[in-house]
């Protein structure tokens, strides 16, 4: 069982991922609606796995990823991306993202990804 934090500016995406994880052994310990909040919450909650949206207001997912990796170089961050964000996904990978999923994704996709990192 892993502690998961969901970072997405869209409440819809957060609730969707949360619902998908309901049936898994993993526990959603926190959510954040932008990168800045995500970094704050990361420090406090120390989740095992983070799903990180890329396009967000205030602080985007890439910047948050970098900050989190500087706090904990072995943090498990899965980027939540969409077609058209290739350049940013690439940069995320170079900055230590453990992988990425592409919207729209299915329940088994995100569960498999989290299971793998758990």
């Amino acid at each position: 069982m892993s502690k998961v934090m969901i970072v997405d500016d869209a409440a819809f995406m957060r609730i969707t991922i949360k619902n998908m994880l309901k049936k898994s052994p993993h526990e959603v310990v926190g959510e954040a609606e932008n990168g800045r909040v995500a970094v704050e919450r990361y420090k406090a909650l120390r989740p095992d796995i983070i799903t990180m949206d890329i396009t967000m207001p205030e602080m985007d997912g890439l910047t948050a990823l970098k900050e989190i990796m500087s706090i904990n170089p072995s943090a498990n961050v899965i980027m939540v991306s969409a077609m058209g964000q290739e350049a940013m996904v690439r940069e995320a990978i170079m900055n230590g993202a453990k992988g990425f999923i592409v919207k729209p994704f299915k329940e088994d996709g995100i569960l498999a990804a989290i299971d793998k990192l758990a």
């Binding site: 995406m13 396009t55 967000m56 969409a82 077609m83 729209p104």
Partner: peptide, 27 residues
């Protein structure tokens, strides 16, 4: 850009193809 991106993503998850495609093209 960001609004369209969000609508695209959410609509694609909901499988509302028209919404997601239109948001994508505006994005």
């Amino acid at each position: 850009f960001r609004v369209m991106h969000t609508i695209k993503g959410a609509s694609a998850m909901m499988e509302f193809e028209n919404m997601s495609k239109l948001a994508h093209s505006l994005e």
